[in-house]
Write a protein that binds this DNA or RNA. Sequence first.
DNA 1: TAGATTGTTAATCGATTAACAATC
DNA 2: TAGATTGTTAATCGATTAACAATC
Lengths: 225, 225
Amino acid sequence: MRGRMRQVEPMGLISPKVIGRLSLYRRVLHELVAGGQSHVFSHELARLAGVTAAQVRRDVMAVGYSGSPVRGYEIASLIESIAAMLDAGQGDSVALVGLGNLGRAVLDYLGGRRSKMRLAAAFDVDPAKVNRVVHSVRCYPMEELASVVESQAIASAVVTVPASAAQEVSDRLVSAGVRGILNFAPARLRVPEGVFVEDVDMAMALEKVAYFSRQVTSPERAMRT
Amino acid sequence: MRGRMRQVEPMGLISPKVIGRLSLYRRVLHELVAGGQSHVFSHELARLAGVTAAQVRRDVMAVGYSGSPVRGYEIASLIESIAAMLDAGQGDSVALVGLGNLGRAVLDYLGGRRSKMRLAAAFDVDPAKVNRVVHSVRCYPMEELASVVESQAIASAVVTVPASAAQEVSDRLVSAGVRGILNFAPARLRVPEGVFVEDVDMAMALEKVAYFSRQVTSPERAMRT
DNA sequence: TAGATTGTTAATCGATTAACAATC
DNA sequence: TAGATTGTTAATCGATTAACAATC
């Protein structure tokens, strides 16, 4: 049973790596659309995304989209298929905890993107920040975390508090119903089974860069995962 | 030839993943030292770092350090061994390009850490930012990038410019002698063989979190690599 | 010593790559 | 059609895990 062309399975669980690459492909595809291109071959997309053509083919297969051996992938449809996989039905609401320098930068960066995701609320312990509105996101006191998260059905959160506070914040988010955390604090969060944590550890990343910049032969560039 | 206890090889090339974990171990070890602890077993360190004990043993082996079956690893010596691997002899100089919100936040975050690394110079196109000093880091105009990087022997750089400018900045850094780049711009940089690039893609990371926060069963938490 | 832990190899696992029939 | 590309399986590769003799 090989070489059958049509494949219909919508696929079940997809690995974090593949999800990351799909996000990358979508960004590249949007650029191609902006350039007036309507179709793309796996090797073109692969080159632009910095991956192999075989990976592109396998990943595209995973979203349940099929291309044509002659014209390749139709960009508009492929974007739709990826969006169906990555975006929630009515848009996700995201909370941000910790409005320090990093928190504001993240808010700035993520707030300014065309995206189905919506930064719905921010939280901070500092009374001076509470009730202020930054980039049209209101800052609530930490005491209201549970009620706001629950009432707005927030399922994802970004944590930009100091390492010493990260675990407690994580616990509160999880018990309020959050199921995914983007963690910028240099601390390993302990979360219950079923809660997804993605760590962004800038200090570690910089140490990696410093280490390999000293080596005569670097390993191939690592894919962000 | 198995079960021999002493191992002396200093090890050659180490993978980015292992380097990342070593950085993580060091952070945890410093916390243990601060708590007055002098020795640690692989399973303790593993629990605190969120990895397996087998990984700790293999990674520690890679830095050329040996523990004792009775007392485990002596923390102070292990920190020294990891430092010998991760830190440069006389301290690395790092450049930062792009002093927008994200750039300032990164400068803020990385500048405030006890580290052998030194943020030596910042660069920006905006004349209003040039020649100002932020966190004791001077901001130079882009025109002086090559001369400053060369004169200060800067080998690593952090890129926090918009995606549209990232490739050009990368090219200029590399031709000035930079061999490792921490890239925050949502763009894939093309660099010559031997130059290491670590991407920090916040938008992708958030999309991953949003995706898995919608799944009933999340995969185990991904290690930052 | 007895026993838990280490260093180190072998087995396992997952992801990537190579290969190729089916296709337009 | 001829030929380049796709969907999909098999082979390869690397990293993780399991296992165990050597050790204090």
